[in-house]
Design a protein around this nucleic acid. Structure first.
Lengths: 204, 204, 204, 204
DNA sequence: AATGAATGAGGCTTCATTCAT
DNA sequence: TATGAATGAAGCCTCATTCAT
């Protein structure tokens, strides 16, 4: 391996360190309240060093979001795949649950990706990203459900949007209102997911 | 009317102008990104003037939130009251709709009250406010529904939290993702509300 | 008594209140750290009211100093007069003590008059004031002492300046270094005054 | 010399320039009346640059005081050492003179260290500093004088405090009242120092 | 006599970013 | 690659003061 490659690899490592530090700080204090200095301090480099790896603060956010979207899509898709052969209701339940779980386990990412709408976030979109690919999995799932006779025969897009709203609602509230006296977390999530599925299902 | 009264009233008007300007700016750009300078510029006063009417930036936010909570509660409670005598499902539908409608018609308030969670917001609570009184209306409604036999016999708190999550989901997404290709707004809202009610109802 | 007189008298009262409030605040926090607002708040008037009675902040200081100088001179002169008939050493001791006592009992005034040298304080001088009239008492005393054979035959001005320095030293240090581990206050003062007198006296 | 060293040295130079500018300004106008802007202007840098070298305004004062205390102690101690072998009265005279001389030649430092008592100054103490080590030299001297039979047999602490007050008096007055019609400076200082020594000496 | 309203100037400080090394 | 040095812009906020009423 040449010297060039080693350097490149080191560069990648530092980029990663920056992203990690930024993710943590952004989540704790909010994008606006985190300065380049603070990110630099956290990784024990000087502020100008960040500019070697990222054009500016926004680019750090963008990269971070891109990675977040990828993780997000991966989480949902793999759950869907792993439950491919279960009966539909369970497959759906687990896939929806993976959405909420992602938000719960990656509060920082979820906040930045789906709750806050940072100024120019839209600009990341269009650049190839996985932001809405999770939604496509949902549409697919819904279509299966209709074919299966479980989900009621409506516009799959409409259904998917409604379901997404249901998922986002619980995920966002648990994230944002962490001091609200929720009933036990597993219980409210489970109840809510079933409520959603019931809400879109044919009555027996 | 004495001179004193006129002056006082003028003061009240400026306070109102400040709140309005701040509401708009905070919602657009986020609390952290709005400076006193910017608020002052928007109402065409000098920055120090703001400090005549509000102790500091936080107090502007507090006042704004307080007003928002009051409007919010009023919107929901009055809808509930006006539909008191309708059959339960319609009463519920209209009350839930009033939540989404409030969020849709007061995007800035909704964002500040329920989407962003500004650090200091928690401090407003405790000071008498209407933040969670809307939730109490919901609990009441749910209990009626259970008594009525429409809503399934579960923990009313659990049910209410789930419904709230459902409502917040659609309200927040429409607010935040205004560039997403939603199906027609009235349609998705209507569908979603019915989905929620179905989701918590006894099957016939 | 006419209405005009009453008003005038009321004006005098408010002026006095302002001076009192200012004296206290200046002494506590230093001239620079006291704002017109704070003075106004202390007497429960609005800031512009102060400008009815004083041209500006400096004028408040000047007035205050003028009063301080008067009190100072009065304290020393009256002590001198009251001890006119005692033997010289005691007369001197008591007069010198009255200087230190004034500084101890009027810390705020002493600080403003003799320790800090606020910007334009010099401007107060020239306006008739009692700043240096205390010094004249001292010169008089010294001359008496020389005539009396107690104080050594030197330039009375030189002697007086040296004595003043001695007095200022203890007064200022006790005022400024209130956390220094002084021996008991009465004791150090008494010792110091005797030291001064011995220092300028003929040896027996 | 490496690049790093040169940079470091340049940094040290700027720190020094800041301290010098601040010393002059603080002494002239008082700590409270000197703004970071003004210090920056004096050294022809932008205000934020100061924050590269000092955390905040207070730290500039602290550093400055620390240096002043060191210079002060050094001045007195070295004089004492240099006169170790002279007869006691001369040793004492020269040591006391070095105090006054320090104050005369370092008016700004003396003002900041012993005349003004800036709120936060107390906080520098405790951090290792030389503020009161000069006083210890004085105590030592006094004890020698007692042993020597020159100084009268009193509490050495009491004696030292009284002498300090004497020294501070002349130093502070000459510093603060530079427009007062003093007799010739050398003369008043010399007279005053002898007055102090006589004041604490045994009569022959 | 008294004060609500208003502001230009300026206080301390942090920011994102650039540049030379 | 890495960073010391530097800064224009801007953050929140307080000040002394004026003016119309």
């Amino acid at each position: 391996m040449g010297i060039k490659d080693r350097r490149k690899r080191e560069g990648v490592i530092i980029r990663k360190k920056i992203i990690e530090a930024a993710t943590e700080l952004f989540a704790q204090a909010g994008y606006e309240n985190v300065s380049m200095r603070k990110i630099a301090a956290k990784i024990e480099y000087s502020p100008p060093t960040l500019y070697i790896y990222f054009k500016n603060k926004r680019e750090i956010l963008f990269e971070l979001l891109k990675q977040g979207y990828a993780l997000f899509y991966e989480a949902i898709k793999s759950t869907y795949d792993q439950n491919k052969d279960k009966d539909f209701r369970n497959k759906m339940l687990e896939t929806l649950r993976s959405y909420v779980k992602f938000g719960d386990e990656n509060k920082e990412y979820y906040k930045l990706m789906f709750i806050h709408n940072i100024d120019e976030t839209e600009q990341v979109i269009g650049r190839d990203n996985d932001r809405y690919r999770g939604f496509e999995v949902l549409v697919m799932l819904v279509k299966e459900g209709i074919a299966d006779g479980v989900i009621n025969r409506s516009d799959p897009i409409l259904l998917s949007q409604s379901i997404w709203a249901g998922l986002h609602g619980i995920t966002a509230l648990l994230n944002t209102f962490d001091k609200f006296p929720w009933v036990e977390k597993e219980r409210i999530i489970d109840f809510h997911l079933n409520m959603i599925i019931n809400g879109v299902s044919n009555k027996k």
